[in-house]
């Protein structure tokens, strides 16, 4: 049995198709990459200006001067890693053959312009209208929205990957978001460790549930009304 975060990641990965261009946000979304099946190529977009992230080669600016010297100038390629090749989380990465790099305006043209098949990101709250809050907690120091507002404003599919409840046990799926919004009505699917909720005709609709969970148990943990699809799938948890 996988832990909650990995259950979520595995079920998100099952929604991606061979050849999809996908942006994975920080947190649980970064785990999605390891559940993409063999033989399926998902092209990972980094908003700092890369497509086709392959492996993590190390954390940038860890003062690993030897590595940087050996991966500078034209000594190495994107296949081997380079001191000037990072993802949006500041990790040195390698690219798959066919990966490419571009400036930040092109990177967000891809996002806003509807060229990404999916963007997967974490959330603090999602409400019944598909509104997303994921960048600021009132009363806490603010980090900034980064690229999140742009990434959800144009992707063909916005997948929220989050645990069903907060650390205090409060439902993160609510009637109305109380935290500052990232975007309105943008969420296509929510994947938690308990269920998959798709917004069908604007209605939050459960389309899959964790094995053994009853509808009443799910509703008791959710602070908004949910519809149930005719056929409810069973989430993978192993």
């Amino acid at each position: 049995m996988l832990d909650n975060r990995n259950i979520i990641a595995k079920n998100v990965a099952a929604m991606l198709h061979d050849g999809d261009f996908v942006n994975l946000g920080v947190g649980i979304p970064t785990l999605v990459g390891s559940y993409i099946p063999e033989g399926t190529t998902v092209l990972l977009h980094g908003e700092n200006g890369i497509i086709g992230q392959d492996k993590i080669a190390g954390r940038a600016f860890d003062n690993d001067t030897e590595w940087e010297k050996a991966h500078s100038k034209e000594l190495t390629t994107s296949k081997e890693g380079h001191k000037d090749l990072c993802n949006a989380g500041n990790e040195y990465v390698t690219l798959i053959p066919g990966g490419c790099c571009f400036d930040s305006s092109i990177s967000f043209a891809m996002a806003r312009g509807g060229h990404l098949d999916a963007t997967v990101l974490g959330a603090l709250q999602v409400d019944k209208h598909g509104n997303l809050a994921n960048w600021a907690v009132p009363g806490k120091s603010v980090n900034g929205m980064g690229g999140a507002m742009d990434l959800v404003s144009g992707a063909k599919k916005v997948i929220v990957a989050m645990e069903h409840c907060s650390k205090n046990g409060e439902s993160k799926i609510v009637d109305e978001c109380t935290m500052p919004l990232t975007a309105i009505g943008c969420v296509s699917v929510i994947v938690t460790e308990l269920c998959v909720i798709e917004f069908l005709d604007g209605e939050p609709t459960v389309t899959a549930m964790a094995p053994g969970l009853t509808r009443d148990e799910l509703l008791a943990k959710t602070d908004t009304a949910l519809s149930f699809a005719e056929n409810i799938g069973v989430m993978a948890v192993e």
């Binding site: 980094g46 994107s78 380079h82 000037d84 090749l85 993802n87 790099c101 571009f102 400036d103």
Partner: peptide
Amino acid sequence: VFKYSAMNFNPL
């Protein structure tokens, strides 16, 4: 000419 992701915001 820029290297890989070091381009980012520089041209803009």
